[in-house]
Amino acid sequence: MMKLLKFLLLGIVFGIIMTKSETISWFRIQEMFRFQAFHMYGIIGTAVITGVLGVVLIKRFKLRDFQGNPIVFFPKEKSFIRYILGGIIFGLGWALSGACPGPMVVNIGYGFFAMIIVFLFAIFGTFFYGIIKDKLPH
């Protein structure tokens, strides 16, 4: 149980960040897709730039995790079609519902219970992908 507690705490902090940065807001996602404010780009940009620096440092100094194991990054499978098609489908849903999977559940905790519908159908969507995945180009 104690092993899991740290993930619960990180999740709580993540939920607070998503809310207070207003990343969970449909309005903010609209503003982003209309290029009418820097807010969301600033958030993602800062996370990515500091992320790139951190990953470079981890690799450069061969840093280890809390159990002393080397930290390794696995390259994602090489392909084009699945990333572009999957990405486009995801983007259509992201703009429509104003939420990606993380913000969906944060919204539910916040009290926007309509997001329960969005989240349940996201599970159905993943389930449907699992059923037809062998028929899709990857």
């Binding site: 995801f90 849903g93 519902s97 309509a114 996201a122």
Partner: peptide, 18 residues
């Protein structure tokens, strides 16, 4: 709401991440 959620769930797995 339903369609938006479905597309996110389907697309994220097809693309291998969100």
């Amino acid at each position: 709401l339903a369609f938006g959620g479905f597309l996110v769930g389907f697309g994220s797995r097809y693309a291998g991440g969100c």
